[in-house]
Every structure is written in structure tokens, then in C-alpha cells.
Nucleic acid binder design. Sequence first.
DNA 1: ATTTTCAAT
Length: 256
Amino acid sequence: MPLFLKKLVSFEDFNGNFNNIGQVHKTLACFNLGNETPLWKHWGFAYNNPNSDHAEQIILQELYTFLGLDQSNISLKYKLNLYTSYSPCFSCCKDLCSFLDTYKNQVSMHLKIAKLYKFYDSNNQRGLQMLRENGADITIMDLEDYKECFYLFVSPTDTFQPCPDLNHYSYGNARDMDLLWNEDESRSKITIHKSEICHCKGSSGGNESSSVFAATEFSTPESKKDNNEARKITPEKLHIAHGCKGHKGVKRKLSF
DNA sequence: ATTTTCAAT
Ligand SMILES: [Zn+2]
């Protein structure tokens, strides 16, 4: 397992996974678990296991093992900081929700994300929305977060040097995430309003309220038919591929 | 506003 406990991340791996704006085909996730005392109770990092486990799964497994022993100490309040080079996929979001549910009122989760993973996939978007609704604090890493992550997990003595345009990309990702949160909030009212009449499935029409409800119910896993036209955030490239010349892309589609 | 990405060649 590519899990490293109480060890620092190398400069090379930090730069290769966090401090870059390229397309990286692996994920690095760093975590620390603390409480009132200044010293971390547990910390480390993990890479994904190629073609097998996502980095979040590996860290969650470690946390279940670690916290399982502490189950008796109800009064303890843990704070989990999780830095991930990619945002969690839909499946990992569900796993993170389960973790929060398992340690309800015992562990708070603070997720700091470098880049959005396959954000065009509406399932991944819904996963992040669900995770947030389940109490996780989710943000895109800004320059200060990169600096902090570097300080905590790479070197407390060296100076973090952001790669060119890192701040610019971070800002763009943060904007995408804000749009997702805004979409989430405006739709949550619909979900509540329609919650009583959404039990009847099968009635097609694929209206938005039923799909929202399905998401809330965790009842739509990786359905391969991802041709969901209700998707709100779509890369401009997709529009171009479909022969649509819309330049506003995300912004336009989310204006409601 | 940068986009196909926890690969697959
Ligand atoms: Zn995942």
C-alpha cells in the first residue's frame, strides 16, 4: 500500500502532484488528525494504488484502524485536515460521508483540494455537494494553503515556491467550486419542497427535482449513462465539441 | 477561465 505514516513528502512529489498545473495521472493526499493538544495524533500521506485504490480510500482505511481503538473515548474531538491533489471522486465522496457518519460529533473534516478531478462528470459534482451537506468543510487550496501544506508535509525550513500560474489556476478552481455550491444551495430548496412526492420513481421526464432527490438518497452510483443533460457545469470544450459556440460556458449555464 | 484528470499506451 502506498501509505506513509509520520513521514515527510519529498520536494519532487509535492511539486509533481500539488505544485503544478499540468495533467497528472496520480493523486497524493496528505492528512493530519489533531485535537486540543498541539501535537498531531496521527499524520501521513498516501498515493493512489494504480488501477486499484484511490488515495482517499487508503487514508480512510488507516483512519478507521487508528480511530477504532479510540472508540471508547467519546469526549475526544478530532479535527481531520486532508490535503488532496485531486478532489475526491463520487465513490470516495460516499466513503468520506460514511466516515463522517461513523464518527459523528467526534471528527470534523477539513478538505483542501488542489485541482478538481473530472469536474465535467456530474456524479463527481454531486459527490462534492453531498460531502459538503454532510458537514465537511471543503475548499480549493489558495496560495496560503499550498504554503501551509508545504510547511507541514514537506519542509518547515524551506520556502515554498509556487509554480508559474498556480495562483491563477487556484482561483479558477475556486470559482468553479463556488458555482457548484451556489447551485447546490439554490436546488436544496427544491429538494425539500418536493421531498414528499419524489418516491415515485420510473416516471420519466428526468426532471431536475427527482435527480436531486436521487442524489440525496445516495441511490445513483456510477451509472454509466452519464449523458445527463441537467449537468450544470461543463467545460467549454464540450460545447465546442457539440458544435455550440457558447463562450460563457459555466457562467451562463449557472445563472439561476 | 485551464480543463478530460487516482491512465493507457
Ligand atoms: Zn476516488
